[in-house]
Design a protein around this nucleic acid. Structure first.
Lengths: 135, 135
DNA sequence: CCCATCTACAACCATTTGGTTGTACGTTAG
DNA sequence: CTAACGTACAACCAAATGGTTGTAGATGGG
């Protein structure tokens, strides 16, 4: 069980996941490849763009772990990984749990009249690793 | 309940949502702004980048509907919108429901030996509106 | 074998992104 | 008023993105 698989040290796994989902064509490919594996060329025929462009989209989805490719003869069959959406959802869960935990805690603190002021123990750099210059 | 709010005709709302989430700095900002509103300059102090850069990140989050800004005096307080994560989750739900529906339907179709018309010349354009040249 | 198909990949281009700096404007404190 | 703070925004730059075309390597059919 790869716990770090969801969020590695820099969060680049999550980056790839959401980035892959942030494109309509790629989301559409995901939907299409659920009803059964489709070859890349068959996919390409469905969009108003070149084969190579679709190929790149599939690569992005693959690197994000959202689809898998399997070769059958000269074709490359693309299939969505059902667990992948679960992974994306879990990434959201982690954000949301931060929500709930904080909000919940805030209620308690307010009850005590305390003020975390978002200052004292706040400067705890979570990750803030955008795509840094060293990227 | 604004159903269309989740996915407009071209899906660009979903695009913005996932794009905003596809960056570690922005996800970190979301986490920080849960424990209470933070001014942009206070946020900026937490990252190894300029004020203007953080300002841009906040703008991206705002356009995605993930945070709201409220002016207090000369400060601009940033606060995450708890419902926003719910919206992202729902976008995932829509993808996942496509999964389940298709898979479920496939079982039935296989039993009938029918073809649901996923054919190449029967492209059912869901959206496939990447960021087209017209966009 | 020869040809058509499917894939892979490189080179190239326009636009976007993420970052910088600099400047201008509103607000609060002295 | 003046100075300092916080914000807004424009101009600029390097790198990534999304697209194109072209070329080359496998695979399968006649």
């Amino acid at each position: 069980m790869v716990v770090d698989g969801i969020a590695d040290e820099t969060g680049e796994t999550v980056d790839r996941l959401f980035h892959a989902l942030a494109d309509g064509t790629r989301r559409d490919i995901l939907r299409r490849c659920v009803r059964g594996e489709l070859s890349v060329s068959r996919l390409a025929a469905a969009y108003p763009m070149s084969f190579a462009a679709v190929q790149k989209h599939v690569t992005v989805l693959e690197r994000a772990g959202l689809v898998t490719k399997e070769r059958r003869g000269r074709e490359q069959l693309v299939r969505t990984d059902p667990e992948a959406v679960g992974r994306a959802r879990q990434a959201l869960d982690e954000l949301e749990s931060a929500w709930r935990a904080r909000v919940d805690r805030m209620s308690g603190l307010l009850a005590e009249g305390a003020d975390d002021g978002a200052g004292p123990d706040a400067p705890d750099p979570h990750e803030h690793t955008t795509k840094g210059p060293d990227g």
